[in-house]
Nucleic acid binder design. Structure first.
Length: 738
DNA sequence: AGCACGCCGACT
DNA sequence: GTCGGCGTGCTC
């Protein structure tokens, strides 16, 4: 084919590509996946070359202006994956590509080298100088401290940013011969963390792990694509199975990608992989754009055997990928909540199929979507029903809070049973974990006289009182205000602080167990960098006896001295107006319960609830995922919800309610021509109808094999563009419908 | 997404 | 008469 024309995908919500002529001076320099600068309207924009042609039917074809990448950023597989995403998630190819590729470097062709600062003296001398300069030259001391922590050195600009100093202390240190500056090519930046490698012994696999690993290894050897759902209870050694499978792939000179939820992407998780594997690249969310691109290039050059990262690492440009692993596959953070709204799990499966490689989806509480596919034989189910150490799963007690005696007109936060168990545990010198999936102090403020509830000025949401900050905060739009002293409605003086979050639990625990060391871990306390690690460390060392927290304490923690775990209220997630609320509740209880019983002292879990007979709670207390699935699946089937039907959600939002309602109605009217009536729900106000001063209306389309969503794209987009002050979001396979 | 074009109401 | 808001269509 004479490559005189190229098809270019632009980052526009337009479903088609544009064809440009390649001027002679650029001939041969554009490859599939290259970024190109093209004229568009009266401006110029960047797009991706996604195809070649030898002719154009259009009379007016314009010339490509420039090529940004001599070697393309995109492989065939990733381009194919972007095409799959565009079809599946109803976005343009250009939009899909912006998710697949890293954010481009500032000022396109950045310099090839960068300045690094490294130690020029042995650590003992640095240590000594650091102490000596601490009071008189704090900036210099800071720099030395940082270099002691980073034996590989640090890029000059980044170092100044982290220390927060001018270039002058660096100059002084350099002339003192303590540090030196080296010019390094960008590409020789060390892969993160490789310096801290600590070897750890390879454990022997138990019978179940062997049985799970065998078919995975067979698939790797056979070179086929297959999806494995690894259902292993907490502590059953799923990670060891991943490590063995990855080892098998790496030995063949191929690469592996490991996806974990953002909250699990902690130094502990990474260290676990580093202890056993070399050449690991870590893609965390707080890399700068330049760092991310750097990692990207090096992964593409084959310098990493294993890539660990959150959601977007599914697009890592490994040259010869051999396996994909997705841990905690049920986690909703794998779904991106902005365009393109892709699910990393389904995207990983699509990539594995494109590349002809296996993928392992692991979880103690699989999503019903994956479980059903495994039942249907589409995925291969592998079970790890026992813990590796031979210890039983901890007994879980359901504690009915309806029988509790109220104190001062309110139910107690901790019931009698939990109070007693916590007391006994701390007397024995053991540790306690208290979980509540709600941060803040009081979840609503209400007037004692008229019953008015204080709501956000911009949302239809009650404000949560945060005691640490002394502010009333909206958890949806982050609006903050002084907590009112008098009722905003009736001027009454008595504002009551009701509903409990982690802050109130912490306070209550301190009151009930005076003298006991209590700490709290949630996204409020985690704001300061390093505080998660330090709190974890203090808990590990036994300095903290009781740890109160949200989601953050529900994962990965593995401390043998934790003998009591309390789920303060399992009711919160149970009452969310979403069809997955039971599934969410089951997952939370099961995950938190897995944090105990890991040592010889055993452990006990107490689940406080007002609905002790609810199936999600009953089954989670028996660690019985399959039992829960057997109960929940017929309910989903009868209502036509996932996993039996796929879901598409159209959410319209805008400042003027009338217009929002109209657009939602127009979309529904158009869809009624294409979709059977029983497959269309709404339009109606969304369960949270007003957020950030915008009204929200939504409608749900239930899909099936006979009604692929792809055909609806043009229909919805046509209506969506009618009123531009109303935004219309199309969410394929939404993780919630709030 | 932007931006130009063209269509109807109320004003210097 | 025209200024301008709003809906529509197009971009190689």
């Amino acid at each position: 084919v004479k490559e005189t024309f190229v098809d270019v995908a632009l980052k526009l919500p337009v479903d088609r590509e544009f064809r440009y002529r390649v001027p002679p001076e650029l001939a041969g320099r554009i490859a599939l996946g290259s970024r190109v600068r093209v004229p568009f309207r009266n401006r110029s924009t960047t797009g991706f070359c996604v195809g070649f042609a030898d002719r154009s039917d259009l009379p007016k074809v314009r010339d490509v202006l420039d090529v940004l990448d001599e070697t393309p950023l995109l492989s065939d597989v990733l381009l194919g994956l972007a095409r799959w995403m565009a079809r599946r998630y109803l976005c343009s190819l250009g939009e899909a590509l912006t998710a697949v590729l890293p954010p481009s470097v500032r000022g396109h062709r950045s310099s090839r080298t960068e300045r690094w600062i490294e130690a020029a003296s042995p650590p003992s001398r640095l240590e000594e100088a650091c102490d000596r300069l601490r009071s008189s030259r704090p900036a210099q001391a800071e720099i030395l401290r940082l270099l002691l922590d980073e034996p590989l050195g640090c890029e000059a600009t980044e170092l100044r940013r982290r220390v927060g100093c001018s270039p002058s202390p660096l100059r002084t240190l350099e002339s003192a011969g303590l540090v030196r500056t080296v010019e390094r090519p960008r590409s020789s930046r060390p892969l993160s963390g490789t310096a801290y490698r600590e070897e750890s012994p390879v454990p022997v696999l138990d019978r179940n792990q062997e049985a799970a690993l065998a078919p995975i290894v067979a698939t790797i050897r056979g070179g086929e694509s297959r999806v494995f759902l690894l259902h292993g209870v907490t502590g059953s050694g799923k990670t060891e199975v991943y490590l063995r499978a990855i080892g098998e792939v790496v030995r063949r000179g191929r690469q592996a990608i490991v996806l974990v939820p953002e909250i699990s992407l902690t130094p502990q998780t990474v260290a676990r992989f580093q202890a056993r594997l070399e050449r690991i690249a870590v893609l965390h969310s707080h890399l700068t754009d330049a760092e991310r691109l750097d990692q990207w290039r090096r992964i593409r050059e084959g310098e990493a055997d294993v890539v660990i990262g959150a959601r977007s690492a599914v697009f890592a440009p490994t040259p010869d990928l051999g396996i994909l692993v997705l841990d905690e596959e049920h986690e909703t953070s794998f779904k991106q909540q902005s365009a393109p709204r892709y699910h990393a799990r389904d995207t990983a499966v699509a990539r594995a199929r494109l590349q002809g490689i296996p993928v392992i989806l692991g979880s103690a509480t699989p999503s019903l979507e994956s479980f059903r596919r495994a039942q249907d034989g589409e995925y291969t189910l592998l079970r790890l029903p026992n813990r590796v150490d031979g210890r039983p799963l901890p007994p879980v007690e359901i504690y009915d809070m309806t029988g509790e005696r109220w104190i001062g007109g309110k139910p107690p936060l901790l019931g009698r049973r939990l109070r007693h168990l916590v007391q006994a545990a701390i007397e024995r010198g053991e540790q306690v974990l208290l979980y509540l999936n709600r941060r803040g102090h009081s979840t609503y403020l209400t007037c004692h006289r008229c019953g008015h509830v204080v709501k956000c000025a911009r949302c239809d949401i009650t404000l949560t009182f945060h005691r640490g900050r002394q502010r009333a905060v909206c958890h949806y739009c982050s609006f903050e205000t002084e907590p009112p002293v008098r009722c905003p409605a009736c001027e009454g003086p008595g504002i009551r602080y009701l509903g409990a979050g982690t802050e109130k639990i912490e306070e209550e625990v301190q009151r009930l167990f005076p003298g006991c060391a209590v700490a709290r871990l949630d996204s409020d306390t985690a704001r300061q960098r390093g505080s998660i690690e330090s709190t974890m460390e203090r808990f590990r060392s036994g300095e903290i006896q009781i740890l109160v927290g949200t989601q953050m304490i529900a994962k990965g923690l593995d401390f043998p001295n934790v003998t009591v775990v309390g789920i303060v209220s399992a009711d919160i997630s149970l009452h969310l107006p979403d069809f997955r609320s039971a599934e969410r509740t089951f997952q939370q209880v099961a995950q938190v319960a897995g944090r105990t019983g890991r040592g010889s002292k055993g452990g006990l879990v107490v689940v406080q609830t007002t609905q002790p007979d609810h199936p999600a709670i009953r089954h989670s207390s028996r660690h019985d995922f399959e039992g829960f699935a057997r109960h929940e699946l017929p309910f989903r089937e009868s209502l036509g919800y996932p996993p039996f039907r796929r879901l598409l959600r159209v959410l319209a939002s805008g400042r003027q309610e009338e217009r929002v309602r109209r657009i939602a109605g127009d979309v529904a009217a158009e869809l009624r021509g294409v979709v059977p009536p029983d497959r269309l729900l709404g339009p109606c106000p969304a369960p949270i109808p007003f957020v950030d001063r915008r009204y929200r209306y939504h409608l749900l389309v239930k899909g099936g094999d006979d009604a692929p969503f792809e055909r609806l794209q043009a229909t919805i987009r046509g209506v969506a563009e009618r009123l531009r002050d109303v935004s219309v979001v199309v969410d394929v396979d939404p993780v919630d419908t709030l």
